[in-house]
Design a binder for these strands. Structure first.
Lengths: 214, 214
DNA sequence: GTCTATACGGCGATAGAC
DNA sequence: GTCTATCGCCGTATAGAC
């Protein structure tokens, strides 16, 4: 009976703790994605999470630390499947096709992510190491080896792997960062933008494969 | 003599006014480019320009208005020559070659510009019209017509002009927004990054031309 | 452990003296 | 045109109630 009570009490406490933390992270994530770090106030996060302002400083010691938690969370979630594709043992063409497809689908599901990441990268460049983000966002070691091997087999022309990967990433990601201007210029709705982006899967694949031909 | 004094007086007053305004714009531009709008305080701008804080609100009614002035100034300066190339009567291949080359040279001279612009675009999307920026950054009407004509002459394959222009822009601009990560991953110095970028002139040209082949 | 109340210095903006 | 004083909001720290 005693132990049971203890466990119940502990469960309830931890449940509340998780709930409160969860609520803070959830509210803060939405606000940071939508408005950016600097334009989101801690009072706003607290009010959205329906908690007291100073509770945030209890769970996360500062707004900055809360932010870093959320960055790692967002990027971790987004990059996992993509890294798997890049490091898989798929053939080169199929790997490129799947990478483009999955990356674009992920960004369609998280349309604010690219602008958020670019803002983070350019806000505190010196903190990049701390954010553990670099490796998840830009790691091409296996892919570079594969490009090298295919070249030696005479299947593709010689390319600089870093340049090639940056080309692929540029074609995939940049339109999301430029989204508002694309929508305004072409009078696109949200849905039409997504259609425009989906068309790009094949375009990007064709451009890259065409360029790789020996 | 009377008139002369008047003119002198007027000249001096206007000169001071221009100097003060110039100093504010100059200081603010540097700080906005380097640290972004939100992380730059008006007190910092004033201190850098060696003027009193409230003088800024005298010349520009608010920090926001000063910012918009600077955005239009920066983008106007940067985009002029580029628009001329795109709307010139150069042949398609030569136009693409020159556009890539001039765009990249401009961004090498203004390495902070792309991240600045992307931050602006995503900060207040609804204000895009007000900023007169859209037309300068993304206007492809003449270029689209040229692509159409070349296709009808059978000289290139059929392409969606908007997609093609976005591809070109992505390949040119994105690496600058991703600069810090590229430098970190490859241990690039500033100079090595510029070399990496300059290599891209030919790579991007080849990719685009290769893709256009019928 | 969880939460409230409150205080601090810095922020953008402005009214008003000179 | 220039400067001082001041306002309300911000992120953060902390003392203390429960």
């Amino acid at each position: 009976m005693f132990y049971l009570n203890c466990i119940d009490f502990y469960t309830i406490v931890m449940q509340n703790k998780l709930d409160t933390q969860e609520k803070i992270v959830q509210s803060a994530t939405e606000l940071f994605l939508e408005k950016g770090y600097d334009r989101t106030s801690v009072r706003e996060i607290a009010s959205k999470a329906k908690i007291n302002v100073s509770l945030m400083n209890y769970y996360f010691r500062s707004k900055e630390i809360l932010f870093e938690t959320i960055i790692n969370l967002l990027i971790g979630k987004a990059s996992g499947a993509l890294k798997d594709v890049l490091n898989s043992d798929l053939g080169l063409n199929e790997k490129i096709r799947q990478y483009i497809c999955k990356y674009i689908d992920m960004l369609i599901s998280n349309p604010l992510l690219i602008s958020f990441i670019l803002a983070v990268l350019n806000r505190n460049p010196e903190k990049l190491t701390k954010l553990k983000v670099a490796d998840n966002l830009y790691n091409t070691d296996n892919f570079a080896k594969q490009l090298e091997e295919e070249y030696e087999k005479g299947k593709i022309r010689k390319v600089n792997p870093e340049q090639f990967y940056i080309n692929m990433l540029s074609l995939i990601a940049f339109p999301f960062a430029f989204k508002h201007l694309i929508n305004k210029k072409n009078n696109f709705s949200q849905k039409e933008f997504n259609e425009f982006i989906k068309e790009r899967k094949e375009i990007i694949y064709n451009m890259l494969i065409c360029y790789l031909k020996p």
